[in-house]
Design a protein around this nucleic acid. Structure first.
Length: 108
DNA sequence: ACGATGACTCTTC
DNA sequence: GGAAGAGCCATCG
């Protein structure tokens, strides 16, 4: 598959993330079928600005529940997530086990 | 063409 | 439980 398709799948999966939940790059990569391409998922998310309709990329974080990226971006994502009911402290998702959404479950 | 880098993750110490 | 090393693939100088 080419990376364009990969990116589309990432976007599509990201759009399926329920409100108030978050997921990780690795989880998305795994759901697509390429568990080792977590970095590419990050790239896809970074390119979601061209997505139509827009992708809630703020629901995608690191596997440890930490918001990666530049503070200018992380701060905004933190706001949005908190607004959806996700508790966040110092750019890190609290109660991660509860708010973490596994794409594989939705695919079953 | 080559080496370095990065919104990552996993295994080990 | 935190820190370090290795693996992964695409992009950039």
């Amino acid at each position: 598959m080419n990376q364009a398709l990969f990116i589309e799948q990432v976007w599509d999966l990201t759009r399926e993330i329920p409100k108030g939940k978050v997921t990780s790059y690795g989880a998305i990569a795994k759901a697509i079928g390429t568990p080792n391409l977590s970095r590419m998922v990050a790239k896809a998310i970074g390119a979601c600005g061209a997505a139509q309709p827009p992708v809630p990329y703020y629901r995608v974080i690191s596997s440890n529940g930490l918001l990666a990226g530049d503070p200018s971006s992380t701060a905004k994502r933190q706001e949005l997530l908190e607004r959806e009911g996700v508790e966040i402290k110092n750019l890190k998702v609290q109660n991660l086990k509860k708010v973490f959404w596994n794409p594989l479950i939705d695919l079953e």
